Simulated scan of single mutants.
Amino acid sequence: MNAMQPTVCIVDDDDSVRRALARMLGAHRYHTSIFDSARHFLDEVDLDGAPACAVIDLQMPEMDGIALQQTLSQRIPIVILTGHADVTNAVQAMQAGAVDFLEKPVQDQLLLRAVERACERATEQFARKTELRLLKQKVERLTPREREVLAWIVSGLRNKQVASELGTVEKTIKVHRAHVMQKLEVDSLPALVRIADKMGMGLVARA
Protein backbone atom coordinates (compact mmCIF):
# COMPACT_ATOMS: atom_id res chain seq x y z
CA MET A 1 0.00 0.00 0.00
CA ASN A 2 1.42 3.38 -0.97
CA ALA A 3 2.22 5.37 2.20
CA MET A 4 0.92 8.50 0.50
CA GLN A 5 -2.43 7.01 -0.45
CA PRO A 6 -5.12 9.11 1.24
CA THR A 7 -6.86 7.68 4.27
CA VAL A 8 -10.64 7.59 3.96
CA CYS A 9 -12.05 8.60 7.34
CA ILE A 10 -15.54 7.22 7.99
CA VAL A 11 -17.47 9.29 10.53
CA ASP A 12 -20.81 7.75 11.52
CA ASP A 13 -22.47 7.09 14.89
CA ASP A 14 -23.93 3.79 13.60
CA ASP A 15 -21.41 1.00 14.19
CA SER A 16 -22.91 -1.32 11.58
CA VAL A 17 -22.73 1.42 8.92
CA ARG A 18 -19.13 2.28 9.82
CA ARG A 19 -18.01 -1.31 9.55
CA ALA A 20 -19.94 -1.99 6.35
CA LEU A 21 -18.44 1.06 4.64
CA ALA A 22 -14.96 0.16 5.87
CA ARG A 23 -15.30 -3.40 4.56
CA MET A 24 -16.56 -2.25 1.17
CA LEU A 25 -13.88 0.39 0.72
CA GLY A 26 -11.19 -1.95 2.06
CA ALA A 27 -12.20 -4.54 -0.52
CA HIS A 28 -11.38 -1.92 -3.16
CA ARG A 29 -7.96 -1.29 -1.60
CA TYR A 30 -8.78 1.95 0.17
CA HIS A 31 -7.13 2.61 3.52
CA THR A 32 -9.82 3.54 6.05
CA SER A 33 -10.15 4.80 9.62
CA ILE A 34 -13.48 4.78 11.47
CA PHE A 35 -14.86 7.25 14.01
CA ASP A 36 -18.10 7.13 15.98
CA SER A 37 -18.54 10.89 16.29
CA ALA A 38 -17.42 14.19 14.83
CA ARG A 39 -15.60 15.02 18.08
CA HIS A 40 -13.74 11.71 18.05
CA PHE A 41 -12.66 12.43 14.48
CA LEU A 42 -11.49 15.99 15.27
CA ASP A 43 -9.61 14.81 18.36
CA GLU A 44 -7.82 11.94 16.67
CA VAL A 45 -6.99 12.94 13.09
CA ASP A 46 -3.91 14.95 12.10
CA LEU A 47 -5.31 16.87 9.15
CA ASP A 48 -1.88 18.14 8.09
CA GLY A 49 0.24 15.05 8.57
CA ALA A 50 -0.94 12.97 5.61
CA PRO A 51 -3.49 13.13 2.79
CA ALA A 52 -7.02 12.29 3.89
CA CYS A 53 -10.66 12.65 2.95
CA ALA A 54 -13.82 11.89 4.91
CA VAL A 55 -17.15 10.15 4.43
CA ILE A 56 -19.43 11.80 6.97
CA ASP A 57 -22.92 10.95 8.17
CA LEU A 58 -25.25 13.93 8.13
CA GLN A 59 -27.33 13.02 11.22
CA MET A 60 -25.08 12.61 14.26
CA PRO A 61 -25.60 13.70 17.89
CA GLU A 62 -23.74 16.71 19.33
CA MET A 63 -22.17 17.75 16.00
CA ASP A 64 -23.83 16.76 12.72
CA GLY A 65 -22.22 16.37 9.31
CA ILE A 66 -22.88 19.94 8.18
CA ALA A 67 -21.41 21.37 11.40
CA LEU A 68 -18.35 19.13 11.01
CA GLN A 69 -17.95 20.24 7.41
CA GLN A 70 -18.07 23.87 8.51
CA THR A 71 -15.50 23.19 11.24
CA LEU A 72 -13.14 21.54 8.76
CA SER A 73 -13.50 24.54 6.41
CA GLN A 74 -12.39 22.61 3.29
CA ARG A 75 -9.17 21.38 4.91
CA ILE A 76 -9.94 17.93 3.49
CA PRO A 77 -12.41 16.72 0.84
CA ILE A 78 -15.73 15.45 2.20
CA VAL A 79 -18.48 13.12 1.01
CA ILE A 80 -21.70 13.43 3.02
CA LEU A 81 -24.13 10.55 3.53
CA THR A 82 -27.67 10.89 4.81
CA GLY A 83 -30.56 8.59 5.62
CA HIS A 84 -33.02 11.41 5.00
CA ALA A 85 -32.53 13.39 1.80
CA ASP A 86 -32.92 17.11 2.36
CA VAL A 87 -32.54 19.57 -0.51
CA THR A 88 -31.53 22.43 1.78
CA ASN A 89 -28.76 20.40 3.43
CA ALA A 90 -27.62 19.04 0.08
CA VAL A 91 -27.32 22.52 -1.41
CA GLN A 92 -25.57 23.82 1.70
CA ALA A 93 -23.07 20.95 1.69
CA MET A 94 -22.29 21.23 -2.02
CA GLN A 95 -21.91 25.01 -1.86
CA ALA A 96 -19.46 24.52 1.02
CA GLY A 97 -17.32 22.29 -1.18
CA ALA A 98 -18.52 18.73 -0.55
CA VAL A 99 -17.43 16.26 -3.20
CA ASP A 100 -20.87 14.64 -3.15
CA PHE A 101 -24.06 14.30 -1.10
CA LEU A 102 -25.42 10.75 -1.19
CA GLU A 103 -28.50 9.11 0.27
CA LYS A 104 -28.36 5.90 2.33
CA PRO A 105 -28.44 3.08 1.58
CA VAL A 106 -25.82 4.22 -0.90
CA GLN A 107 -25.00 2.18 -3.98
CA ASP A 108 -21.42 0.91 -3.88
CA GLN A 109 -20.53 2.32 -7.29
CA LEU A 110 -21.85 5.78 -6.45
CA LEU A 111 -19.84 5.87 -3.23
CA LEU A 112 -16.73 4.48 -4.88
CA ARG A 113 -16.84 7.17 -7.57
CA ALA A 114 -17.30 9.87 -4.94
CA VAL A 115 -14.46 8.49 -2.78
CA GLU A 116 -12.20 8.27 -5.82
CA ARG A 117 -12.79 11.96 -6.54
CA ALA A 118 -12.28 12.82 -2.88
CA CYS A 119 -8.98 10.92 -2.79
CA GLU A 120 -7.78 12.68 -5.93
CA ARG A 121 -8.56 16.05 -4.34
CA ALA A 122 -6.90 14.98 -1.09
CA THR A 123 -3.71 14.03 -2.91
CA GLU A 124 -3.64 17.35 -4.77
CA GLN A 125 -4.38 19.38 -1.63
CA PHE A 126 -1.69 17.61 0.38
CA ALA A 127 0.88 18.12 -2.38
CA ARG A 128 0.08 21.86 -2.44
CA LYS A 129 0.27 22.14 1.34
CA THR A 130 3.58 20.28 1.39
CA GLU A 131 5.01 22.50 -1.33
CA LEU A 132 3.91 25.67 0.49
CA ARG A 133 5.35 24.42 3.77
CA LEU A 134 8.73 23.76 2.14
CA LEU A 135 8.67 27.12 0.36
CA LYS A 136 7.87 28.86 3.65
CA GLN A 137 10.90 27.22 5.25
CA LYS A 138 13.10 28.49 2.43
CA VAL A 139 11.68 32.02 2.56
CA GLU A 140 12.30 32.11 6.30
CA ARG A 141 16.02 31.72 5.56
CA LEU A 142 16.04 35.19 4.00
CA THR A 143 17.11 38.24 5.95
CA PRO A 144 14.71 41.23 6.03
CA ARG A 145 16.91 43.00 3.47
CA GLU A 146 16.92 39.97 1.18
CA ARG A 147 13.13 39.87 1.33
CA GLU A 148 13.03 43.52 0.28
CA VAL A 149 15.33 42.79 -2.64
CA LEU A 150 13.20 39.80 -3.62
CA ALA A 151 10.03 41.93 -3.62
CA TRP A 152 11.62 44.54 -5.89
CA ILE A 153 13.15 41.96 -8.22
CA VAL A 154 9.88 40.11 -8.82
CA SER A 155 8.23 43.48 -9.45
CA GLY A 156 10.31 43.61 -12.62
CA LEU A 157 13.09 46.01 -11.62
CA ARG A 158 16.69 45.54 -12.68
CA ASN A 159 19.49 45.43 -10.14
CA LYS A 160 20.44 49.06 -10.78
CA GLN A 161 16.83 50.19 -10.28
CA VAL A 162 16.50 48.17 -7.07
CA ALA A 163 19.70 49.76 -5.79
CA SER A 164 18.24 53.18 -6.46
CA GLU A 165 15.00 52.34 -4.64
CA LEU A 166 16.88 50.99 -1.61
CA GLY A 167 19.56 53.69 -1.54
CA THR A 168 22.51 51.43 -2.16
CA VAL A 169 24.79 50.36 -5.01
CA GLU A 170 24.16 47.84 -7.75
CA LYS A 171 26.97 45.57 -6.57
CA THR A 172 25.28 45.16 -3.19
CA ILE A 173 21.98 44.25 -4.85
CA LYS A 174 23.75 41.63 -6.97
CA VAL A 175 25.13 40.05 -3.79
CA HIS A 176 21.70 40.06 -2.13
CA ARG A 177 20.11 38.63 -5.27
CA ALA A 178 22.65 35.82 -5.38
CA HIS A 179 21.93 35.00 -1.73
CA VAL A 180 18.19 35.03 -2.37
CA MET A 181 18.49 32.60 -5.27
CA GLN A 182 20.83 30.36 -3.31
CA LYS A 183 18.57 30.21 -0.26
CA LEU A 184 15.44 29.65 -2.34
CA GLU A 185 17.29 27.07 -4.45
CA VAL A 186 16.39 28.55 -7.83
CA ASP A 187 18.44 29.68 -10.79
CA SER A 188 16.16 32.02 -12.73
CA LEU A 189 13.93 35.07 -12.37
CA PRO A 190 10.77 33.21 -13.49
CA ALA A 191 11.38 30.69 -10.69
CA LEU A 192 11.63 33.54 -8.18
CA VAL A 193 8.39 35.03 -9.49
CA ARG A 194 6.61 31.67 -9.14
CA ILE A 195 7.73 31.36 -5.52
CA ALA A 196 6.64 34.90 -4.70
CA ASP A 197 3.26 34.24 -6.32
CA LYS A 198 2.70 30.96 -4.48
CA MET A 199 3.66 32.53 -1.17
CA GLY A 200 1.39 35.51 -1.73
CA MET A 201 4.28 37.96 -1.60
CA GLY A 202 2.77 41.01 -3.26
CA LEU A 203 4.64 43.10 -5.78
CA VAL A 204 6.09 46.39 -4.62
CA ALA A 205 4.39 49.47 -5.99
CA ARG A 206 6.78 52.25 -7.03
CA ALA A 207 6.02 55.71 -5.77
Rank of each mutant, 00 (worst) to 15 (best):
A96L: 03
Q107S: 07
E148A: 08
Q109M: 13
I80D: 04
F101G: 00
R145P: 09
G83S: 06
E120K: 04
A90S: 06
Q95C: 07
A98K: 01
L134Y: 12
T143I: 09
T82E: 03
D86S: 02
F101C: 02
K138Y: 10
I80G: 01
L112P: 11
P77A: 05
T82L: 03
Q125G: 15
A122K: 02
R147G: 15
E120C: 05
R158V: 09
R145A: 13
Q137H: 12
A114H: 07
T82S: 00
K104G: 02
G156E: 09
E124M: 15
T71E: 12
R117L: 12
E120P: 05
E148S: 14
V91A: 03
Q92L: 06
G97I: 02
F126S: 11
P77H: 04
V139W: 15
R145E: 11
D108E: 14
A96I: 06
R141L: 14
G97L: 07
V149W: 09
V106G: 03
V91T: 09
V115N: 10
Q92H: 08
A118D: 09
Q95H: 07
F101S: 01
D108R: 06
S155A: 09
V115I: 13
E103S: 02
Q69K: 00
I76Q: 06
P105W: 01
V149L: 12
A67L: 03
L142D: 14
A98R: 00
I78C: 11
K138T: 11
K136S: 14
V106R: 00
L157V: 05
R121A: 14
Q107G: 08
E120T: 07
R75S: 09
F126E: 12
T130R: 12
R113H: 05
E116I: 02
Q95M: 08
L111K: 03
K138E: 14
L68F: 04
E146K: 05
V115Q: 08
T88E: 03
V99C: 03
R117Q: 12
D100S: 01
A118Y: 06
H84R: 06
I80T: 04
V106I: 05
V87P: 01
E140I: 12
R147N: 13
T82V: 01
A151V: 08
K129E: 15
T130K: 12
R158W: 07
E131F: 07
V87W: 04
R133D: 15
D86A: 01
E146M: 06
R158H: 10
E103H: 00
W152F: 12
A151M: 09
T71Q: 12
R75W: 08
Q92N: 08
Q125E: 15
V79P: 10
A114L: 10
I76N: 07
H84K: 03
R133G: 14
C119T: 09
E148M: 13
E140M: 13
R145I: 09
G83Y: 04
S155Y: 03
R147T: 11
Q125K: 13
P105C: 01
S73G: 08
A151K: 04
M94C: 04
L72F: 01
L134P: 06
E116N: 05
N89M: 08
L110D: 15
